[in-house]
Design a protein around this nucleic acid. Structure first.
Lengths: 340, 340
DNA sequence: CTGAAAGCGCTTACAG
DNA sequence: CTGAAAGCGCTTACAG
């Protein structure tokens, strides 16, 4: 391993002047020394030891990405997309990225402290543990899609409520009269927001959502599938809390010979790329992952640079993307027909 | 920040005996001291500084995962699945994981050296650069799906050739007579293997693959789509080098009113979860991602533990999963019908 | 513009 | 069973 000392010896200078060159503090080194030292660094393929740097300077240039769960969390395209967007943004800043999957609070602090991590971005719902996490870690912490009563939390989310509204309006506009909501974890803030926007909009329009039509996914989808097949109405319009859920549901309903948009209509949330390649293509509430990732990393670095920066709550916009999974119910007998 | 010194002072011992307790070398410390020290560690929430540990012990407990590319590489479900499988396996060993996306060779060495990384797993095709990477990094390096003439490389791959054979056999068994191959990057070893197995099997059966039916995807899929639509044969059976390609292709062909398995048949490769939720469900060559990830991390840790361990080339098995995207051509007029 | 000294928080290697 | 010393490779802070 080549060290500063090796370079210094060969250049006939002290480690300090080599250190200055390595760090680009050219103003304090003579031009000839800069050139000489740079040549030697090049020749010997010198790479600064970040471990030593971190120890002495107290700045590690490591950022952590913490994903909730402990299995293959990237099997969920939502997580994969978010992580994949964030990685290049972190690298572009010259930072290193540690990736952690965890579902227990204690882990997080340990992992962050061990490496003097400078900041972290959380992907997934940490609603309940946010308070403890913040209390134990005095570094910039950026949450995504988290709802918490704790003030002073920096979060990047989307307008979940509006997403629900958009879905409801779109279905109403297309002449739907029967509605259902299917969501994972109704307790999570994100899902609750989407649900609320949907329900309240329908209510205002005179279509209160019946309790039997509010479905929460527990362990398996089977119950949900049965419930939907058991609906007495002719054609029900379903709003789901996530594309992945909508896609899986369509697949399971197809096994029971229920095809969208012929037998029912369905709207997703996220606009993952899978939404566009499924049959029928999924109509969904679209959020921008590049923007979300950018907002999160921008906030992260702003807070790393200026620890006194105020916490911020960013809410990104959503819009509806009309594709093929919702039928138009206006002219009876004309069958499914997409309407924008 | 709590340090060994703080604990030592409070316990009235030297840092060395605290260090022993922290590292579990209980045999060399009195029972009472162990208890006393553990209590203080607990109370003060002491977390060892990995940065200092790494510097003095020369072992960082960091492993790198290097994914080829520089955009959102996890948008590709193949990469996402692999990375997602590997993360928990690394964590289970008490190691930390750094994730890097890169498409230039120089980056890799720099990143590995900076943190004294103990080993790395590569996801994606690095065929051409393997030699240089190995030369410059004397740590365990595990490649996946790489083909290289360099001996002494440790690689985990699947039986690509067999995958091609299986696809060909299955299509022949189903009475197909017209064939095509569509692949990304025919130059890569993986794709070449799949293609070769396919072509040679067809040849032996008396169906040499015409040059016009070997399609390589360049920038866009448009050329491929046009080429396929221009085929003179009635029904062509297409073998693609990857599920993602097959799925995208089906979608694009649907725009041109070509539906599988009515108008053409198609087989993918990988068996990503997307293969099962697309319409028609994709018949594909299946590989086990959990096994692949396990093999790669096992090899990695074996080599970290024993640097003299011989390099190994692991080839995992593949099998065909029959779903809905291939028609049976035996009894004319009976239309598509899946055959196992 | 340059460098000697001290120190970051640990572990290694040794002495007792 | 315990600890004092040295050192890992760098940076900070200071003196010149």
């Amino acid at each position: 391993m080549v060290t500063l000392k090796d370079i210094a010896r060969e250049a006939g200078v002290s480690v300090m002047t080599v250190s200055r060159v390595v760090n680009g503090n050219f103003s304090k080194v003579s031009v000839e020394n800069i050139k000489k030292i740079q040549a030697i660094i090049e020749k010997k393929h010198y790479v600064p030891n970040s471990t030593a740097r971190s120890l002495s300077s107290k700045s590690s240039r490591i950022v952590s990405l913490i994903v909730r769960g402990r299995g293959n969390e990237l099997t969920n395209p939502y997580n994969a997309t978010m992580v994949g967007e964030i990685v290049p943004l972190i690298q572009k800043q010259g930072y290193y990225l540690m990736l952690h999957f965890t579902d227990q609070y204690g882990d997080i602090t340990q992992r962050l402290r061990a490496w003097n991590v400078e900041g972290a971005i959380f992907v997934g719902t940490f609603d309940g543990e946010i308070q403890k996490i913040i209390r134990d870690n005095q570094i910039p912490l950026i949450f995504t899609d988290s709802y918490s009563r704790v003030r002073q939390i920096t979060n990047v989310g989307v307008d979940d409520y509006k997403g629900g509204e958009l879905a409801a309006h779109y279905l109403l506009k297309n002449g739907h009269k029967n509605f259902a909501f299917v969501g994972w974890a109704l307790a999570s803030g994100v899902v609750r927001g989407r649900f609320k926007g949907f329900r309240e909009t329908l209510e205002k329009a005179g279509y209160p959502l019946d309790r039997s039509h509010i479905l929460e996914v527990k362990d398996s989808l089977s119950d949900i599938v049965s419930a939907i097949c058991g609906f007495e109405e002719d054609h029900v319009a379903i709003f789901t809390s996530a594309d992945l859920l909508a896609v899986t549901l369509m697949d399971r309903l197809r096994e029971r010979n229920r095809i969208a948009p012929r037998d029912y209509s369905i709207i997703g949330f996220d606009d993952l790329s899978i939404a566009g390649c499924v049959t029928p293509r999924l109509t969904t509430i679209s959020q921008s992952f590049p923007k979300k990732a950018k907002a999160a990393t921008d906030l992260l670095f702003r807070h790393i640079q200026d620890p006194t920066a105020p916490s911020e709550n960013v809410t990104l916009d959503v819009h509806l993307v009309s594709r093929e999974s919702v039928s138009c119910r206006h002219r009876d007998g004309h069958g499914p027909m997409p309407v924008s």
